[in-house]
Design a protein around this nucleic acid. Structure first.
Length: 484
DNA sequence: TTTTGAGTTGTTCGA
DNA sequence: GTCGAACAACTCAAA
């Protein structure tokens, strides 16, 4: 009589270095790999359109990986506990395995499911698969959660990163009869209207894997990462974020690949590009750590003083920002890249974010929402931390007076205007000197370039100098209300 | 326990 | 053009 085990895939859509799957296979059981599409159980943060698009492809690719090992992915829609229970009923499975998630809704849901399953005599085994270290295990000397990155990072460097599971799974035992699967199209993740052609092109969807992105980056990008990372026109970053979010590659695999390349026995030497890059990987861990310990921060500022911040809600300005028609080229280029590819360069995320929050005084939550729906790498922890950082209300946040000047940032980090020209072809003919401030260009240059301000490219929707002063005075106003 | 120093990613202004 | 100070105040880790 063979035993059945369910492996419930969530944000770990991979076969290699998947602790839950490995444990199930090593137990000798017949394994039922399961994915449940249950957006209504994600609370306010059901995956957005871009995430769904990515998920669709990630599930297809997981299914291929499983099929190459004699298995397959069972897809279901519905509530998680009911779906798992119905599979248990059908197959008599006695064990359920998964890798832990850390979002507030997932934590609640999972602990509820564990209780219910164990009550009915089903064993549940959970593992650390999405992070290098579980947030509960990371504590400062006072036994509390870290709230500042640098000590967190220092602490991380003292920890041993477990090596990825080397036992590559060659064969996964199948159940005698496969439970029904709804099939990928049954989940309806891909929209009827094809707005994702630009994404397919940008990501070479279905062909370029996470490992190709990683290998390519380590070979070509990593050596100059520190110099290039801030220049959005250069391919200086790895673009691994969506793969990491969906667990198509594990942080341990990433860590290991870099450390191996460095030829240092697990220790990082400071000041190298490799260390700088792995530091970013640890930012991902830090974000998760923060969200785990401060779950309310998806909606509430960590620094509660900001509850009194006089945000404005101006729908017209907000839609200008969303559509990339603010009149500030670097902001607009970023927002259009986001819309067309589901991704935005990190430097530009900060500039565009700062513009929304400080120049337009629109609540960071509105920005977080928009990113949530449009990013293929939308990740609740990273998104929450990023927006609170840019708004100045988060952990280790930018001081409020640090206000990005979109013209200066453009000139510094896109000096030739290549990035702007790529995403704003209407400005392509404009001189470098004015590419980041077309409203100051002489009339004849604009004419030559075919730019008609207010027609094919907007005038700035706010004056940055004014906006900066206004933001600072709002901050003063907020402080007054705290003192009272 | 107290003190000290540091803190992802900036900008502006005046010398 | 370059440089340093100011822009706030506070939390937190670590000595």
């Amino acid at each position: 009589m063979s035993r059945y085990a369910i492996v419930w895939f969530r944000q770990d859509l991979r076969v290699i270095d998947n602790p839950a799957l490995t444990a199930a296979v090593e137990s000798g059981a017949d394994v039922i790999p399961l994915y449940i599409w249950s957006p209504e159980e994600e609370g306010d943060w059901a995956p957005g359109s871009a995430s769904r698009y990515w998920l669709h492809h990630a599930l297809l690719s997981l299914d291929r990986e499983l099929q190459a090992r004699g298995s397959r992915l069972v897809l279901r829609g519905g509530t998680c506990l009911e779906t798992i229970n119905s599979l248990i009923k059908q197959t008599g499975a006695e064990h359920v395995y998964w890798n832990r998630c850390y979002e507030p809704a997932a934590v609640k849901r999972d602990s509820r499911i564990i209780k219910a399953l164990e009550k009915s005599g089903v064993s549940v085994e959970t593992y650390t698969g999405q992070l290098l270290h579980d947030p509960q295990q990371i504590k400062n000397r006072q036994g509390k959660a870290f709230r500042v990155f640098t000590p967190f990072w220092k602490h991380y460097q003292t920890l041993d990163v477990t090596r990825p599971l080397k036992a590559t799974i060659k064969k996964i035992n199948s159940p005698g009869r496969w439970p029904k699967s709804s099939g990928i199209n049954g989940l309806g993740l891909i929209p009827v209207i094809n707005w994702y052609a630009g994404m397919d092109r940008f990501w070479d969807t279905g062909r370029r894997t996470a490992h190709e992105f990683l290998e390519c980056f380590i070979r070509q990008g990593l050596p100059d990462y520190s110099e290039n990372r801030d220049f959005p026109a250069i391919e200086g970053v790895s673009r691994l974020s969506p793969f990491l979010h969906f667990g198509q590659i594990s942080p341990r695999q990433v860590w290991e690949a870099v450390v191996k390349r460095e030829q240092k026995q697990g220790r990082l030497s400071p000041g190298t590009a490799a260390t700088a890059w792995l530091r970013q990987l640890v930012w991902r861990e830090f974000a998760c750590h923060l969200l785990y310990h401060f779950p309310e921060t998806t909606d509430q500022p960590l620094n509660i003083g900001f509850k009194n911040f006089p945000w404005k809600s101006d729908k017209r300005l907000r839609s200008c920002w969303q559509a990339g028609i603010t009149g500030y080229p670097i902001v607009d280029a970023g927002m259009r890249q986001l819309w067309q590819t589901g991704w935005m360069h990190n430097r530009v995320r900060m500039i565009a974010g700062s513009f929304l929050v400080k120049d337009l005084l629109i609540h960071w939550r509105d920005g977080a929402r928009w990113f949530w729906d449009t990013l293929v790498d939308a990740d609740l922890a990273n998104n929450t931390m990023g927006w609170q950082w840019v708004a100045g209300c988060g952990a280790d946040a930018a001081p409020y007076f640090r206000i990005f000047n979109p013209v200066r940032q453009g000139e510094r980090f896109d000096p030739e205007g290549q990035y702007v020209r790529r995403w704003l072809p209407e400005l392509a003919g404009l001189d470098n000197k004015y590419i980041h401030r077309p409203w100051q260009a002489p009339k004849n240059l604009l004419k030559q370039a075919g730019v008609i301000l207010g027609k094919n490219y907007p005038e700035p929707i706010v004056d940055h100098d004014m906006a900066r002063k206004r933001a600072l005075s709002c901050y003063q106003e907020m402080k007054k209300t705290i003192k009272k």
